[in-house]
């Protein structure tokens, strides 16, 4: 169990670092979406199903949609 959790946390941190590095904002958004998704799984492991649901539907789905719309209406690459 703790091994799975550790691996998930490492992937999550790697995704966060990736969001920091990517010059393409769309890729960075997807990376931060992945951070949210893994966080939702971790919430579930921490016995918080309510929060996991909220994080998956709000944090991962809606926020990403809002980001994608905003990037579409501005510009995609970080100069």
């Amino acid at each position: 169990m703790i091994i799975i959790v550790s691996v998930l946390i490492i992937i999550m941190l790697a995704a966060a670092v990736a969001a920091c590095i990517f010059k393409d904002l769309l890729s960075a958004t997807i990376a931060s979406c992945m951070v949210s998704l893994i966080a939702a799984v971790l919430f579930f492991f921490l016995q918080a199903p309510d929060v996991a649901m909220a994080e998956a539907s709000i944090g991962a789905a809606l926020v990403t949609a809002v980001f994608v719309i905003a990037i579409r209406r501005t510009r995609r690459y970080e100069e």
Partner: peptide, 17 residues
């Protein structure tokens, strides 16, 4: 059960997305 107004509302909104 797990869930509530905020989660349900978010699910509905994702349907609109």
């Amino acid at each position: 059960s797990p869930g509530g107004g905020f989660q349900g509302g978010a699910v509905i909104a994702s349907g609109f997305v």
